[in-house]
Amino acid sequence: MIKTILIISMAFLTFAIFVTIYRLVKGPSASDRIQALDVLGINIISGVAIFSVFLRNTGFFEVILLIGILSFIGTIAFARFIERGVVIERRKQSD
């Protein structure tokens, strides 16, 4: 019973990931693509959590935390790049 529900949830998540990949390919502006990548990371976190329940294995919990942190840092870097043109700004020289 629980395995059936978990498999159904995995199927839903797979559908959501494919639909997000459609937006990633098509998206008219760069912000759409960054948004799609962010959602993709969140969906992958959900997939890892469901898979660890499915396998009854607690070894994947670090992966959840790690993907969350990496996805957040990547999103911030891309957003800064779009907004200002650089990711890490140089210190302003005194004139």
Binding site: I5, I8, S9, M10, F12, L13, A16, S46
Partner: peptide, 12 residues
């Protein structure tokens, strides 16, 4: 878990 998957499909 199924509710969470349904919400993510809604966002998709």
């Amino acid at each position: 878990i199924l509710f969470g998957a349904l919400l993510s499909i809604l966002s998709a």
